[in-house]
Design a protein around this nucleic acid. Structure first.
Length: 555
RNA sequence: GGCCCUAUGGAGAAGCGGCUUAACUCAUCGCCCUCUCAAGGCGACAUUCACGGGUUCGAAUCCCGUUGGGGUCACCA
């Protein structure tokens, strides 16, 4: 009769350390009362997901707020789906949002006493724990093939039973150690399963920091903990890592609630205290049929954080928006703060809504406009440069032509009490301000300009010529506008809307129309920043050139 | 399908048995202001809290049921 110990030694002959040794190697952290140790545990299977950004934001927040530790652990146990380099990418994208771990996997390096922080490098640690489970008779090798498993599932479906590997369906559980040794010696491939003592008819009480208390069926599945490739599965790695890395609160997506019973049983049989759990609502989106669904990286561009970066949204805005989803009282708070110092906000799990919010692009844009509006000239120029350098060659080229000039453009009605808020991202900046540049302007007006159709070409020419000769830009804004009003009045335009409305038949239009004609001529657009400043920046000579150019096309 | 989570306007939500003829923010729509936009100011937008019962003098708030939405049932995380 082969003992459990002998079986364990046969499977893991090289493992000499014990669980106790590991306990000593990774002692409890010396942290003050209430300090939370949180972790973000991505798998390197692609770029940063908006939902992951949300989770890591909260992890960072909780750790900072409690004087704890936030670390990153790379969960690279799925070798098939792994994408080279995505781990580094993840970390560098987090950094853009100012989410920097205190410890753990840092991209090109690791930091901290509880490592390694890359699961594939922790294989030995998992083996120590699995060997222990084997010795205790709480784990066993399973030789079932995918076909065997499939057959089990089919028979269960036919009988309308819960699918899975459990109780009497767990065939390999029934094998004797002698039979196991025999099969192993024959070279049969195997995985190692956890032997559950649970019954799904029993309910267990669980507590979640955001959902509160609820009941859920006990686990009865003999889940795989050790794959045939020698790496652990998520469930097992979660228990081992969060125990030995001394995580106090596991913050993860709601999709994990269903496997909570597995995790709880794992912690129990290992004799470990389970961490606190916080299952975050998932960010959703409305699909074409009007159904809600989880933001999907494959289907939704806004699911990838890179989308916002590439389009030039300020990182702060995304974080601010995400905070409004995280805590319902954040929005009111940040309004009071005038959209500043959001790091001072006190996050709490209890103020979190339980239903997954629909991603609201409009609200993100609102925050983005507020944030960009608040930037000083130097800040906005710096941000634009950084963005252009990385993502937008056309913008980069514009800025490079003359940075001072670009700064002047961006500074129109900025750095004042009520700054303009018309930029929400840098992605469309070239389109919005291109007309300031001669060659772009000439290109823009090539196809002709569209003026208000109530004016004839000769009306327009008359206005433009009068403005060209009569409108001075070397005066203050008020005088400049009074100047334009006066010119307009001479040509039959009312000085303001009220006067026009009283006797509409007496006028061709209002000063507004005069300004619009000038604006379209100078910028090629119906809307632009403050015309006075546009003219100042363009300078008299260029304004005249543009007027002449347009006039010639209208004659 | 089983199990779990969840349910207040177009969106995010406050509300925790009487203070609610349901706060606030975004969006939308009006009006005012205005050189166009943007901003700003003012106003409109849930007779009602998914539905049906019940408890109560009184319910969005408590209980039961139904329905809708989401998640999950892998050698993926």
């Amino acid at each position: 009769m082969v003992s459990n110990k002998e079986l364990a030694n046969l499977i893991f002959p090289d493992v000499e350390e014990t669980v106790e040794d590991l306990e000593k190697r990774f002692p409890n952290r010396a942290l003050s009362e209430g300090a939370e140790v949180t972790r973000f545990a991505p798998s390197p299977t692609g770029f940063l997901h908006t939902g992951s950004l949300f989770t890591s934001l909260i992890c960072r927040k909780v750790a900072t707020q409690t004087g704890g530790v936030f670390y990153v652990r790379l969960e690279d146990t799925d070798t098939k789906r792994e994408i080279q380099g995505s781990g580094e990418q993840l970390l560098s994208q987090l950094k853009v949002f100012d989410i920097v771990p205190d410890e753990g996997y840092l991209g090109n390096s690791q930091k901290g006493d509880y490592g390694p922080y890359i699961q594939s490098q922790r294989a030995y640690i998992y083996r120590v724990v699995i060997k222990h489970l084997l010795e205790e008779g709480r784990a066993y090798p399973c030789f079932c093939t995918p076909e065997d498993l499939d057959a089990i599932r089919k028979s269960q479906e036919a009988k309308k039973l819960n699918p899975g590997y459990y109780a009497e369906f767990a065939k390999c559980r029934l094998l004797s150690n002698d039979e196991r040794v025999e099969l192993i010696k024959q070279g049969k491939p195997f995985v190692i399963r956890f032997k559950s003592n649970g019954n799904h008819l029993n309910k267990i009480k669980v507590h979640d920091e955001v959902h509160g208390d609820f009941e859920i069926a006990q686990n009865d599945q003999d889940i795989v903990i050790y794959k045939s490739d020698g790496l652990p599965t998520y469930h097992f790695a979660h228990a081992v890592d969060d125990h030995f890395m001394r995580t106090t609160t596991v913050i993860r997506g709601e999709e994990w609630i269903a496997s909570l019973p597995i995790h709880i049983e794992l912690f129990e049989t290992l004799g470990w205290k389970a961490p606190k759990y916080s299952h975050l609502p998932v960010i959703m989106k409305l699909d074409e049929q009007g159904h809600k669904r989880k933001l999907s990286k494959r289907l939704d561009s806004e699911a990838a954080v890179s989308f916002f970066l590439e389009d030039g949204y300020p990182a702060e805005a995304l974080i601010m928006y995400l905070m409004t989803i995280a805590n319902s009282n954040f929005e009111e708070w940040i309004f009071q703060q005038k959209f500043e110092h959001m790091e001072q906000f006190e996050f709490s799990f209890s103020k979190m809504s339980l239903e997954g919010a629909l991603f609201d692009m409009g609200k993100l844009q609102f925050f983005a406009r507020e944030i960009l509006g608040k930037k000083t000239k130097d800040e906005i120029v710096r941000m634009a440069k950084e963005y252009a350098e990385k993502y937008n060659p056309a913008l980069k080229e514009l800025i490079a032509q003359d940075e001072t000039y670009f700064g002047e453009i961006m500074n129109i009605e900025r750095e004042k009490e009520n700054p303009r808020k018309d930029y929400e991202k840098f992605g469309n900046l070239v389109e919005l301000i291109g007309f300031f540049y001669k060659d772009r302007y000439d290109e823009l007006v090539k196809g002709g300009l569209v003026f208000n159709e109530k004016f004839s070409n000769s009306d327009i020419v008359e206005v433009l010529e009068a403005l060209k000769s009569g409108l001075a830009i070397d005066q203050d804004e008020q005088s400049w506008f009074a100047n334009m009003k006066e010119i307009g009045e001479k040509l039959g335009f009312a000085p303001n809307g009220k006067t026009f409305k009283q006797n509409p038949e007496m006028y061709k239009g209002t000063v507004g129309d005069v300004a619009e004609i000038l604006r379209i001529t100078l910028t090629g657009r119906k809307n632009s920043p403050n015309l006075y400043y546009v003219m100042k920046i363009l300078a008299k000579e260029e304004c005249d050139r543009r007027i002449d150019k347009i006039v010639s096309t209208l004659k």
